[in-house]
Design a protein around this nucleic acid. Structure first.
Lengths: 125, 125
DNA sequence: ATTATTTTTGAATGATTGTTCAAAAATAAT
DNA sequence: ATTATTTTTGAACAATCATTCAAAAATAAT
């Protein structure tokens, strides 16, 4: 009973993931998320509770569904750089990812992703 | 002539570097920098121009003076993750660091630092 | 139809953000 | 001493931030 949800949580999380990957956690504003998802603040908050909740759900979902995709790796690094030190819940998620990571050389995987994100390798200008 | 500076730019940059390493770029507020340095906003701005200027000077100075220290590596990763994509000046600094980096395996160096920063390896709890 | 329940809407809130700048203080030159 | 120059001071500013919540809308149950 009650009004029907106008969106599918899993589809919204894909959009949210892209935004966090693009701008980082601190660099992402709620306005960014509102614009990208097409939802209003209230809907996002009733679905995820907080900006942190949105990030945690995005990270969890990506870890669950595509352990070594570029998006997952980027979310993992953002979590490690910006959140893990002060957030135990996120630290636990990262431990799980680390344990289950298929890669044989995690360090190199992470380092390569950081370097790629910087854009210092391509196009001389 | 004129009033004497009450601080040494190079000493302030060491403090500023520590703050940026601790909180990241977006995660660092001017209040954080004011508290840590003991200087007031006006002094910081007349010395460095902007928050971005403070970061750039901190990064440059560290790259110049201790190419592979933990602080330098952390500043480099923060720059790569949060700033490089949209800031050409920072991208150039990072290219210089990359070219002159003494390490034989930069990817692994970066990845190891990210992993260490996350804190997921130590202390089980 | 009426009632109950859930979701959407979006304006409002208070806090925090980076930046500015006129006035005061300190020093050097005349 | 007076003038010129530089730095410090810190209040003020507009912009942006994450979050809240009462009202409206939509759906299901009675």
């Amino acid at each position: 009973m009650g009004r029907k949800k106008s969106f599918q949580q899993s589809e919204i999380l894909i959009i949210i993931s892209d935004v966090f990957v693009k701008y980082g956690f601190e660099g992402t504003s709620l306005d960014d998320l509102v614009k990208a998802t097409g939802l209003l603040r209230g809907s996002l908050y009733s679905a995820f509770g907080s900006k942190r909740g949105m990030f945690i759900d995005a990270l969890s979902e990506n870890i669950k569904q595509q352990k070594d995709s570029e998006i997952t790796i980027n979310l993992v690094i953002i979590a490690m750089m910006e959140l893990a030190a002060k957030d135990n819940t996120i630290r636990q998620l990262l431990k799980q990812w680390y344990k289950e990571s298929a890669s044989s050389n995690v360090m190199e995987l992470l380092g390569k992703a950081v370097l790629k994100r910087s854009g210092i390798l391509e196009g001389g200008e």
